[in-house]
Computed example of a mutant assay.
Amino acid sequence: MQYLTSSAIRAVDYNEAMLTLTVWFTESGGPYAYYNVPKSEYRGLLAANSSGAYFNSHIRAQYAA
């Protein structure tokens, strides 16, 4: 599990074998799993200046939860 310094996302975890991104939000908790997420998206989320904005534009609506 990777803890983030974000007002929107508390922590994330990535299962490379299953291509599953698990997210814990600061407000609604979690875990919430997103499937078939490429590792590049996980890396992008970790590197983003705003994890919440990256998640909203690259992951939330793009991958099944």
Score class of each variant (00 low, 15 high):
Thr20Val: 15
Ser28Trp: 12
Leu19Ser: 14
Asn49Lys: 13
Leu21Pro: 00
Tyr35Phe: 15
Gly30Thr: 00
Val37Ala: 09
Gly30Trp: 04
Tyr34Lys: 00
Pro38Leu: 05
Gly29Met: 08
Gly30Cys: 04
Tyr35Leu: 08
Pro38Trp: 04
Ala33Arg: 15
Glu27Arg: 13
Thr20Phe: 03
Leu46His: 08
Gly29Asp: 04
Pro38Asp: 00
Ala33Pro: 09
Lys39Met: 13
Gly30Val: 02
Ser40Gly: 00
Leu45Thr: 07
Gly30Lys: 04
Glu27Ala: 13
Ser28His: 12
Ala48Glu: 02
Leu21Ala: 06
Lys39Gln: 10
Ser28Cys: 07
Arg43Phe: 12
Asn49Trp: 08
Phe25Leu: 09
Arg43Tyr: 11
Tyr34Asp: 01
Pro38Glu: 02
Gly44Gln: 09
Leu21Gln: 01
Asn49Tyr: 05
Phe25Thr: 10
Arg43Trp: 10
Val37Gln: 01
Tyr42Lys: 08
Tyr42His: 05
Ser40Val: 13
Thr22Leu: 02
Ala48Ser: 06
Pro38Cys: 00
Ser50Met: 03
Thr22Gly: 05
Arg43Glu: 15
Tyr42Trp: 15
Pro31Gly: 00
Ala48Gln: 03
Leu46Gln: 12
Leu19Ala: 12
Pro31Ile: 03
Ser28Gly: 10
Ser28Leu: 14
Leu45Tyr: 05
Ser28Pro: 03
Gly29Val: 11
Tyr34Pro: 05
Glu27Leu: 14
Tyr34Thr: 03
Gly30Asp: 02
Trp24Thr: 11
Pro31Met: 01
Ser50Asp: 08
Ala33Phe: 09
Tyr34Leu: 05
Leu21Cys: 04
Leu19Cys: 11
Leu45Cys: 10
Ala48Asp: 03
Ala48Cys: 07
Phe25Gly: 05
Tyr35Gly: 05
Tyr34Ile: 00
Ser28Phe: 14
Phe25Asn: 01
Pro38Ser: 01
Arg43Met: 15
Ser28Val: 12
Tyr42Ile: 09
Leu19Ile: 02
Leu19Glu: 14
Leu19Lys: 12
Asn49Glu: 13
Ala48Lys: 02
Pro38Ala: 02
Ala47Val: 02
Asn49Pro: 08
Tyr32Gly: 02
Asn49Leu: 14
Thr26Trp: 02
Asn36Ser: 15
Val23Asp: 00
Leu19Gly: 05
Leu21Asp: 00
Val37Asn: 06
Val37Gly: 04
Tyr34Gly: 01
Tyr32Trp: 11
Thr22Lys: 05
Asn49Ser: 13
Pro31Ser: 02
Thr26His: 03
Glu41Asn: 08
Glu27Met: 05
Asn36Trp: 10
Pro31Trp: 01
Arg43Val: 15
Tyr34His: 07
Tyr42Val: 13
Gly44Val: 07
Thr26Gln: 07
Thr26Ala: 06
Glu27His: 10
Asn49Val: 13
Asn36Met: 12
Ser50Ile: 04
Thr20Pro: 04
Thr22His: 02
Ala47Lys: 10
Ser50Cys: 08
Thr26Tyr: 07
Ala47Cys: 10
Leu45Gly: 04
Leu46Asn: 08
Thr22Glu: 11
Tyr42Pro: 11
Thr20Asp: 06
Ser40Pro: 06
Thr20Met: 12
Val37Tyr: 04
Thr20Trp: 03
Trp24Phe: 14
Glu41Ile: 13
